[in-house]
Design a binder for these strands. Structure first.
Length: 564
RNA sequence: GGGCCUGUAGUUCAACGGAUAGAAUAAGAGCCUUCUAAGCUCCAGAUCAAGGUUCGAUUCCUUGCAGGCCUACCA
């Protein structure tokens, strides 16, 4: 995909006989030009040297045909274009900055974060939500019809452990009170403490757990009542968290709803001889021919596993919604599992498109997070930590602000900082969480970018800016050109981020644009520019930059503020 | 044992096989009587190792070294 400026140049190139889909790049230094492309491919086809081809083409291009190109220069194997700032401004201002409408109403379901009930919500889950949110927005921005879905795992050993803990509270040391921290967080702590206790008293407790599990699965009334009550603490808490993070699920499916159907599918697979009985009577599918080892579909005692329910979930997704694709966002440690799942579905004649998007875990400087080792950073704790830090900074800067204004500003900044930290690195890479970095408000961070939006809104406050046409000719500075060129790349950024399922493309773009604006802002005066026409033109450029920044931050579900 | 992923400045990260490997932080030196200093200048500092493919390799291939994840009854 080319942006509006590249399209113009491409037309010119076609005029001199270049049919290839040229890929443009930016020369290393502004003195070398604004846009370039290498002649390596063309040279290969014509059997000439790239330098020779670059020279020939650059001489053939008639820059009289367009005002966009100020001059063309061959530079080794590259053809470098020097563009006219005013003309770029005209192109950029007269065309809407949009992403390519590649979705055209195609329906896609995105499943995330699919957390467990009865467990804590830590910063690893937060990364899942943040990345999922952005992928949803990227799809929507590209014209897709998106169904965000959450598949909540409310069935399994973790629930049993949690219920056991609740029945044996006197054996456990829970630090917080339920009334103080809320049911969801309290239950998470209960689970962590109970798991640790169970681990240490395995032989003694296992029979009790098995008994409890049996009661749960047979829907014995007392156990079911406790299960439903505790589950609602989790789900109510999650609902609040999702609202806070601006996650809007169209539907929620619980594992307990699909698990029985999953068992039926396993029976069908057995009948079709796709599945077989393995060691000890468990039901498996041997995928070693596909180099995928052995997939477990049912435990030897008859109980279901993840795959049991996931088979039914896949069926239900495509049955309930008329979607073309189902996307699942989980940690990369489940890459292998999803390959197995998709293969088993495939063997069963399931041909719908299923995609797994893996993201890297969130580790701590001390290593992997583990509730057993007691080194987990909960989402709520991180949020409060960042809030406290930013509040101190904000009060120091604005002593005249009232409590409400401070809190509102700090809340927005906190959510921005949280979401930015979780997405600033390539999504499939493991990140090592660093508290100092998370609370930082300098450099490649959310506050740096939001600050630019605040600065621009402050420029507009005195009412000098008049919406309407401007004189493009007055925009001639290099820094203005850089901003316009960056703005024109918005659509490509969206496309690139979506193709790679990589939100960091967007965070980086926001940072580049913000940085470029600060450069402009420091070198040139906006409100006190030399002529009224230049003031208006620069203000309009500022509005454009602010709009594109807001658009990009919207993709990350990050809000902006007027003042900070 | 097998599969997947990752090795780049002190640290955390960028770089469709292309121009002098970019940033951010931390360390050092500056810039507020001038549109928000949560900002901006300047200064240093890096491709795990050895081969191979290529006009050209941080990127692709092979091997080695180091780390992570997964590898049927955990989720």
């Amino acid at each position: 995909m080319q942006n509006i400026i590249e399209k113009e140049i491409l037309i010119l190139l076609q005029g001199v006989g270049i049919q290839e889909d040229v890929e443009f790049s930016k020369p290393p230094k502004p003195e070398m030009g604004d846009l370039a492309f290498g002649c390596f491919e063309i040279a290969k086809k014509e059997g000439k040297s790239p330098n020779e081809v670059a020279k020939e083409i650059s001489e053939k291009i008639n820059i009289e045909e367009t005002r966009l190109i100020a001059s063309v220069q061959a530079f080794g194997p590259y053809i470098n274009f020097f563009l006219d700032t005013s003309e770029i401004a005209r192109l950029v201002f007269e065309n809407k900055i949009l992403a390519e409408d590649v979705g055209r109403g195609k329906k896609v379901l995105i499943e995330y974060p699919s957390q467990n009930t009865h467990k804590e919500f830590h910063i690893g889950h937060l990364r899942n939500v943040c990345i999922g949110n952005t992928i949803v927005q990227l799809y929507k921005e590209s014209g897709f019809d998106i169904t965000p879905m959450n598949y909540v795992n409310d069935f399994g050993r973790h629930v049993v452990k949690s219920l056991w803990g609740y029945q044996n509270l006197e054996k456990l040391k829970i630090e917080n009170k339920k009334e103080d921290v809320g049911g969801q967080k309290w239950l998470g702590e209960l689970y962590a403490v109970a798991s640790m206790y169970i681990e240490e008293h395995k032989e003694e407790v296992t029979p009790e757990l098995d008994e409890l599990q049996k009661n749960l699965e047979s829907r014995e009334s007392e156990t079911t009542k406790l299960f439903e009550e505790t589950r609602s603490w989790s789900t109510d808490g999650f609902k609040d968290l999702m609202n806070e993070l601006k996650t809007e699920h169209d539907s929620i499916i619980y594992e307990s709803e699909v698990k029985d159907r999953g068992q039926e599918i396993v029976d069908e697979l057995l009948k079709k001889e796709i599945a077989q009985e393995g060691e000890g009577g468990a039901i498996i599918v041997d995928l070693s021919k596909d180099n995928l080892d052995i997939a477990l579909l049912r435990k030897s005692m008859g109980g279901g596993v993840y795959m049991t329910s996931d088979l039914a979930l896949a069926e239900r997704k495509f049955g309930q919604y008329s979607i073309e694709e189902s996307i699942n966002i989980t940690g990369t440690e489940q890459d292998h599992y999803f390959k197995q799942l998709f293969r088993v579905l495939n063997l069963n004649g399931f041909t719908h498109k299923m995609t797994h998007v893996g993201y890297g875990l969130v580790n701590l400087p001390s290593g992997k997070m583990s509730s057993r080792a007691g080194n987990v950073i909960l989402y709520e704790d991180l949020r409060d930590e960042i809030f406290g830090h930013l509040k101190k900074e904000t009060i120091a800067r604005h002593e005249d602000w009232d409590e409400e204004k401070v809190n509102k500003t700090v809340h927005t900044l906190t959510m921005a900082a949280l979401k930015f930290t979780m997405q600033k690195h390539e999504s499939n890479k493991i990140i090592t969480f660093d508290m100092n970095e998370a609370v930082s408000f300098e450099g490649y961070s959310a506050p740096y970018i939001v600050y630019v939006v605040a600065r621009i809104s402050s420029l507009l406050k005195d009412g000098t800016y008049k919406a309407g046409d401007i004189e493009y000719d007055v925009l001639v500075e290099q820094e203005e050109k850089e901003l316009l060129l960056l703005v024109s790349q918005y659509g490509q950024v969206v496309q690139n981020a979506l193709e790679l399922y990589n939100p960091s493309t967007v965070t980086r773009y926001c940072f580049d644009l913000a940085k470029s604006f600060n450069d402009f802002y420091n070198k040139h005066s906006v409100l006190k520019a030399s002529t009224p026409e230049l003031v208006q033109a620069r203000l309009k450029l500022c509005v454009l930059v602010s709009d594109v920044l807001k658009k990009s931050l919207d993709l990350l579900t990050i809000d902006t503020i007027e003042e900070m």
